[in-house]
């Protein structure tokens, strides 16, 4: 970008190039100084001592982290699949011809998107037990909460993808005598899916990130495993090392999924079958409760 003009900068001349170089060097030095300061603090507090890192060679500790990872992935897989299914139903409801169905789905979507996911998960976790309705493993409040919240977001993604298909497509299909279900499944969804797929996968990344909320309701996932190992006296309380390890696992998983979404978007855009249809930006007056990816 430095070699070409952007909306902010013209192509830099010799003077600007020199100035950019100076800013670059100063900026790099400042960042490096900050990094050195942090590493020194790690050193000072003994985070690099081998005693703190040794435990991670024990198969027991490795197994423990692996079990946490398995629990995280299990909740993630269930929630991701369920949320897309729920999203498809809610999207169908919002696109329904029946006013009551449309109204009910819109209310459901609006309500659960405005509420903090954590409050929803705690409700599902605490209320059935305290009211004496039923008892369940902490995984289910997490999965159901993630499903409901992400399902509402997926519903919007799916709906946006279907609405982006030009109107002529469905009109032509109706003119050929197709039924509503046929129009949806044979015309609109196959074309819309190319538009919605990248956003659906981005939201799946959010689902993966949010499985860490299970930590707060004592679901034994990765962070819970990290906390337990990090507080273990016999291992010299390797809290920082275990946070680094678990954090790397989380970030790596999310980055791979995000990269897949980006790759898919690019691939679909340059596909031989033509570009997917661009999603129209929502009307400004629409209730803006989304914050993509947060």
């Amino acid at each position: 970008m430095s070699r070409e003009a952007s909306v902010l900068f013209d192509v830099p001349g010799p003077k600007a190039r020199r100035r950019n170089l100076i800013i670059g060097v100063v900026g790099t030095l400042a960042l490096a100084a900050f990094l050195v300061f942090v590493i020194m603090r790690f050193e000072d507090t003994g985070q690099f001592e081998s005693a703190k890192w040794d435990p991670f060679q024990y198969t027991g500790v490795q197994q423990f982290i692996f079990d946490g990872l398995k629990a995280t992935l299990k909740a993630f897989a269930l929630a991701a699949v369920f949320s897309i299914v729920l999203g498809a139903f809610l999207a169908a409801g919002r696109l329904s011809d029946h006013k009551i169905v449309r109204w009910a789905s819109t209310t459901f979507v609006t309500f659960f998107r405005a509420m903090p996911l954590l409050v929803l998960i705690f409700m599902l976790y605490l209320v059935p037990g305290s009211q004496g309705w039923w008892k369940w493993d902490p995984m289910w409040p997490l999965v159901v909460g993630l499903t409901i919240y992400n399902g509402t977001v997926q519903a919007e993604n799916i709906r946006a993808g279907i609405l982006a298909v030009p109107k002529g497509q469905s009109e032509a299909a109706y003119a050929l005598g197709m039924r509503k279900t046929q129009v949806m499944t044979m015309i609109l969804v196959p074309q819309g899916i190319r538009t919605m797929l990248p956003t659906i996968i981005s939201q799946v990344v959010v689902t993966l990130k949010d499985t860490s909320l299970g930590f707060l309701i004592t679901y034994p996932e990765l962070l819970a495993a990290a906390k337990l190992i990090g507080g273990y006296q016999d291992y010299h309380m390797p809290f920082i090392p275990v946070t680094i390890i678990v954090g790397t696992i989380y970030v790596a998983m999310c980055m791979i999924l995000s990269a897949f979404a980006t790759w898919l978007e690019r691939r679909l855009r340059t596909s031989r079958k033509g570009k997917p249809i661009a999603v129209q930006p929502p009307r400004p007056a629409a209730l803006s409760l989304d914050g993509a990816g947060v």
């Binding site: 990344v205 990130k209 860490s212 909320l213 930590f215 962070l223 906390k227 678990v246 989380y250 980055m255």
Partner: peptide, 10 residues
């Protein structure tokens, strides 16, 4: 963007 907020809090 690829880090869970709970992990950052943690």
């Amino acid at each position: 963007r690829n880090t869970p907020l709970t992990l950052i809090f943690f």
